[in-house]
């Protein structure tokens, strides 16, 4: 096919080439300026880390079935039959702080009227997933929670409970 229809490639003229070069150079400069501005404004990750590990208390301090809020750490500790569950108080919907309603035994979010059950599962309202979990460990009879990276989950499973 190629030899039947010989493609006559016009050589690019000198004027054209220089025009293209100018346009290309201008594009590079503008691109660099935009990129540079955004890179300059891009936030620096903080080097100093906030203390994320905190000691909740002794295992024997908790009664079975109790939900204890830790306001300062924005964490709820749930003591179940078999063990412990550490849940973040930050609503997975729009980051409001949920409250524990002792009468109804529910978590309530003040922003969009969400209700969670005691395991952190959504009962009613818009959130996309249950309350996030924090890493929990039991060290020498003390309950220790690390808030460094919240664990997202689909639903409550008994394997999430840390056994004593």
């Amino acid at each position: 096919m190629d030899d039947k229809t010989p493609v006559e490639k016009k050589p690019i003229s000198r004027r054209r080439l220089i025009a293209y070069a100018w346009i290309g150079a201008a594009a590079i400069v503008i691109g660099e300026l935009i990129f540079g501005t955004f890179a300059f404004l891009w936030p620096r990750r903080k080097g100093t880390k906030v203390e994320t590990v905190f000691i909740v208390g002794k295992v024997t301090d908790f009664k079975v079935g109790e939900v204890i809020p830790f306001r300062k750490e924005r964490t709820f500790i749930l003591r179940t039959e078999g063990g412990f569950l550490a849940m973040s108080a930050i609503c997975p919907h729009l980051r409001c702080i949920v409250n524990w309603n002792e009468v109804l035994k529910k978590f309530e979010c003040p922003c969009h009227g969400v209700k969670f059950n005691r395991n952190g599962e959504v009962l009613e309202g818009p959130p996309p997933r249950p309350l996030d979990l924090y890493k929990l460990q039991i060290v020498a009879g003390n309950v220790v929670v690390d808030r460094v990276s919240p664990i997202e989950r689909r639903k409550f499973e008994s394997s999430q409970v840390i056994k004593i």
């Binding site: 306001r71 924005r74 729009l94 409001c96 702080i97 003040p110 922003c111 009227g113």
Partner: peptide, 21 residues
């Protein structure tokens, strides 16, 4: 640490907040 109850957006966004709920 504490979200006011109810936690509301500025009034010109409460329509969107209502829809979100």
């Amino acid at each position: 640490l504490i979200t006011p109850n109810p936690g509301k957006a500025p009034w010109y966004f409460t329509g969107i907040q209502e829809l979100i709920h």
